[in-house]
Amino acid sequence: MAIDREQLLHVAHLARLELRDEEVERLGAQLNDILAAVSKVSELDLSEVPPTSHPLDVVNVFGADVPHESLPLEEALANAPEREGSAFRVPPAGS
């Protein structure tokens, strides 16, 4: 189940990770080792076993519908790398 350079770049793009050439080499090799190890899960026939998404027996937890103060604008924007007025400023979407 080896993953080649093209697949790696595709996955990196899905994850919005720009990888440098050196990283493609190094992380690619490590990734293949990791995928080979985790592929072990496919040895088991579990067609009749239900999945576990989390280990707690709680479903549909509802909160009380009580209005409360939101974070003040200045605090919400306090960590912004760049802001403009009451908004987070980002570069324009390109092509």
Partner: peptide, 14 residues
């Protein structure tokens, strides 16, 4: 720093 937004995401994360 990047001129384009998607490029900004990907480079920030790298």
């Amino acid at each position: 720093r990047a001129a384009d937004r998607v490029e900004m995401y990907a480079r920030t994360r790298d």
